[in-house]
């Protein structure tokens, strides 16, 4: 018979493993019930048409968009960190986000009536090209240091951002650009957010190739010795990252810090073996986005603070805590 300590240990491990999924489910339920239009479970149970309309046309799409955005951004953050081999990068600090912004601007000015798919395709193309250039740039660095890699990414991103801003200015789109770029879930309703479902196949692919992405993190020599075509895997990783960035920026705008904070917290607790940690990274990302969205909806109820702001606050604070912790 196993001793009491072993039983307790197994129990504790099970509780620990269940923490994230339970928290995630609870947050999903809270997210569904928060809102200006009161929607009680009683009304749903009595099949009130109004309650059901609120649920299917607004609350469920919003929940889906939140979860997919969180899962996608956290997953693509961790992939990018393995590709670049640096813990402090995410699409927002490597020029990917600015390139996607430029792509959307080009789509809006060339074909103003174009749909989300056209905008996302151009954003994807621009983001992918910019990421390839960034990775090539980092590969040529003689001295690779932990700080230099993201700093170069930030400078590179600023240059791309300046080009995008000039482009927007010259076409009189500066104000509208700032409007749609700030991450915001309040306008999500059935029919205008579906592009974000592109995240789902990306996450499935990331999971299927989890072992290979972990190997990328060990460097090109180890990866090649173990039989991986390094360049092809880097290209695939960047393609997945670009698809996620494009889909989320078009649907909800820029949401900072998720791709940076969540993978780092998970790595501290569970390590870097993606085949094992990807589920935690994905659910962790979704939970963080849900928390920030619920906060934004409650802070100045019945109005809303865009998630770009609440995430900036919460995510930035978490990131500072992580840095302080690593120093110790």
């Amino acid at each position: 018979m196993p001793s009491r300590e072993v039983c307790l240990g197994v129990g504790r491990a099970a509780v620990k493993r269940a923490t994230i999924p339970v928290a995630f489910t609870a947050l999903c339920l809270v997210s569904l019930t928060v809102g200006v239009n009161r929607m009680s479970l009683m009304a749903l149970a009595s099949l009130s048409d109004e309650a059901w309309l609120t649920l299917t046309a607004s609350r469920l799409p919003r929940l889906a968009a939140l979860v997919l955005t969180g899962v996608g951004l956290a997953t693509c953050g961790v992939i990018l960190q393995h590709v670049v081999r640096n813990r402090f990068v995410e699409p927002a600090t490597t020029g990917g986000l600015e390139a996607a912004k430029l792509g959307i601007l080009v789509a809006l000015s060339v074909a103003p009536a174009s749909g989300a798919l056209v905008r996302a395709s151009l954003a994807l193309g621009f983001c992918f090209a910019a990421s390839l250039i960034y990775v090539a740039l980092i590969g040529r660095l003689q001295v690779k240091n932990t700080i230099l890699v993201p700093v170069i990414g930030l400078m590179y991103g600023s240059v791309l951002g300046a080009i995008a801003e000039f482009y927007a200015y010259s076409r009189n789109m500066l104000q509208s650009m700032q409007g749609w770029l700030l991450g915001d879930f309040s306008k999500i309703v059935e029919g205008n957010y579906e592009i974000v479902w592109l995240v789902l196949p990306v996450v499935c692919a990331a999971y299927a190739f989890a072992h290979r992405f972990t190997l990328l993190g060990m460097g090109s020599d180890v990866a090649t010795s173990l039989g991986i075509s390094y360049r092809a895997m880097v290209a695939l990783g960047l393609l997945l990252v670009s698809t996620t960035v494009a889909a989320t920026v078009v649907a909800v705008g820029a949401v900072p810090f998720v791709g940076l904070v969540v993978p780092n917290v998970v790595a501290l607790r569970q390590g870097d073996n993606l085949a094992r940690t990807l589920p935690s990274v994905a659910l962790g990302g979704a939970s963080l986005v849900l928390v920030c969205d619920i906060l934004g909806r409650l802070l100045i109820y019945p109005f809303e603070v865009p998630i770009g702001l609440t995430m900036g606050g919460v995510g930035g604070l978490l990131f500072l805590l992580l840095i302080v912790r690593q120093r110790r």
């Binding site: 972990t214 060990m218 460097g219 020599d221 180890v222 173990l226 039989g227 390590g271 870097d272």
Partner: peptide, 19 residues
Amino acid sequence: PDCNMRLSVEELVTFGRFP
């Protein structure tokens, strides 16, 4: 090998089976 990943020894050795 300049590898600063958080992997256990067992996980690292298991990657040797990847081919």
